[in-house]
């Protein structure tokens, strides 16, 4: 059971997550995102083996952001002229403002938790392969993404090496961030020159192994679509529909 979300077909998961995000965007009451948020947290608790410590660390900035939303929406929200339900430090908050503010911050929490659910339970390689096999993503694009994924650590290494070498030439360590940003152009030229060479070599190597850009018909490890995927997707949609209905009922 604890493996369910990890084993779920990445494409199906992706479609379900996207669908949920689009739907939530149309609800402005606080209950819908709140209920859905609790729903997906429960799903993660029971059906995944994610590292909760990492989860809390990653959620921290989003939580701060959500609180920021709450605060600004309360202080700067348009006054609808109705009676204030709460007054403190010279700020009066109406019922409507309170609802809006809560809705916004729960939405931030729901969206970020949903994104983390996807990110923490999905293997990037399987995701790209599944996009190619189930959603007919062009193999050229899919394997292109795979190659760049391989190059990322190499590029990161190179970035630091170039930076260090150029400091030695007397490029000052800039204090202000915009000067530092401006100086990036000196780093980008050598990096791009190297990246173009590497990309061409990788393309040649792939072609020499018979890659033509056509979708393969045989896969060593086909990413399967199983009954469990459809059950999970259905359950996912049920949670979504339930929180939407719950939201409508509770608001009235």
């Amino acid at each position: 059971m604890r493996q369910l979300l990890h084993d779920m077909n990445p494409s199906v998961k992706f479609v379900a997550v996207t669908l949920a995000m689009l739907t939530l965007a149309f609800f402005f009451d606080p209950w819908t995102p709140a209920l859905f948020w609790i729903g997906i947290i429960l799903m993660q608790v029971f059906w995944s083996r994610i590292n909760w410590k990492l989860w809390f660390v990653l959620m921290l900035p989003f939580t701060l952001g959500a609180f920021g939303y709450l605060w600004t929406a309360l202080v700067f929200g348009a006054n609808d002229g109705s009676e204030a339900i709460l007054t403190f430090a010279g700020i009066s908050v109406t019922e409507e403002q309170w609802q809006r503010a809560l809705s916004l911050s729960f939405r931030v929490m729901a969206f970020s938790t949903l994104s983390l659910l996807f990110a923490l339970t999905t293997d990037p390689v399987k995701f790209v392969m599944s996009l190619m096999q189930q959603l007919k993503l062009s193999p050229k694009l899919a394997y292109g993404v795979m190659v760049s994924y391989q190059f990322l650590p190499v590029l990161k290494d190179e970035f630091f090496q170039i930076q260090q070498a150029q400091r030695l030439r007397g490029v000052p360590v800039e204090e202000s961030w915009w000067r530092r940003l401006l100086n990036l152009r000196h780093l980008l030229l050598p990096m791009l020159a190297g990246a173009v060479r590497k990309a061409e070599r990788a393309a040649f190597a792939m072609e020499a192994r018979g890659f033509t850009g056509k979708a393969p018909t045989e896969f060593y490890r086909p990413i399967m679509l199983t009954k469990t995927d459809f059950l999970l997707a259905t359950f996912f949609l049920c949670v979504l529909v339930a929180s939407c209905t719950g939201g409508i009922l509770l608001t009235d």
Binding site: V125, Y143, M146, V147, Y149, Q150, F151, K198, A199, R201, A202, A205, M206, R209, G210, F211, T212, P216, E218, F219, Y220, R221
Partner: peptide, 18 residues
């Protein structure tokens, strides 16, 4: 810059799939 998959097995499989 000769490889596009993470592990040895997957790289070999990529060749066979082609």
């Amino acid at each position: 810059s000769q490889f596009c998959m993470p592990t040895v097995e997957e790289e070999l499989a990529f060749t066979l799939e082609n």
